[in-house]
Design a protein around this nucleic acid. Structure first.
Length: 159
DNA sequence: GCCAACGTTGGC
DNA sequence: GCCAACGTTGGC
């Protein structure tokens, strides 16, 4: 199947692209997703090797700060079973886990980052979910065309 | 920190 | 299955 493209949000106070770069193998579990639509993208549609933009939300600046690849098949988010985690879900069970995730591996950092304000001004990106008012979805599909245009803005060759 | 937008929960 | 109440997200 053809490679797909995604955008995933994280608050840098929680987990930033530099945190990802600092991880072993520059790979992290994308845990804590508690929205069904976002989960379904990870569980049902992502494939190893898909391209992902890393977006800093609730941040200054708001920006796409780099890229990652999907690096695992979907599997249950372990934090849902941990009573000490803020992502603990008492209604989930190991027999029937509610929340699935994938691993992601760092591929490139955009320096400088591609600002959201800049995305807004760029022809061809008008339909991006990220730019729509009230769009809160933390994992969003991105088209191949958008993937290319944003790499041009970043001055980075797509990986 | 505020609050609009939106998602989820749970009583009925 | 509706929908009011509540919780969360995320830009500002």
């Amino acid at each position: 199947m053809a490679r797909k493209y995604w955008l995933m949000k994280s608050e840098p106070d929680e987990f930033s692209i530099d945190d990802l770069i600092g991880m072993e193998n520059k790979t992290a579990r994308w845990d804590g997703i508690r929205n069904y639509q976002a989960r379904n993208f990870m569980r049902d549609e992502m494939q190893v090797g898909d391209g992902v933009f890393f977006y800093h939300s609730n941040a200054n600046p708001l920006a796409i700060v780099g890229t990652m690849n999907v690096a695992s098949e979907p599997y249950p988010d372990p934090t849902q079973f941990d009573p000490d985690s803020k992502y603990f879900d008492p209604k989930s069970s190991k027999e029937n886990p509610r929340w699935m995730l994938v691993d992601v591996q760092f591929t490139a950092k955009f320096d400088p980052p591609v600002l959201r304000d800049n995305l807004r001004e760029t022809p061809g990106l008008e339909d991006m979910m990220l730019l729509k008012k009230g769009s809160r979805l933390s994992i969003q599909p991105v088209t191949e065309q958008e993937w290319k245009i944003i790499h041009e803005l970043a001055g980075v060759d797509p990986k």
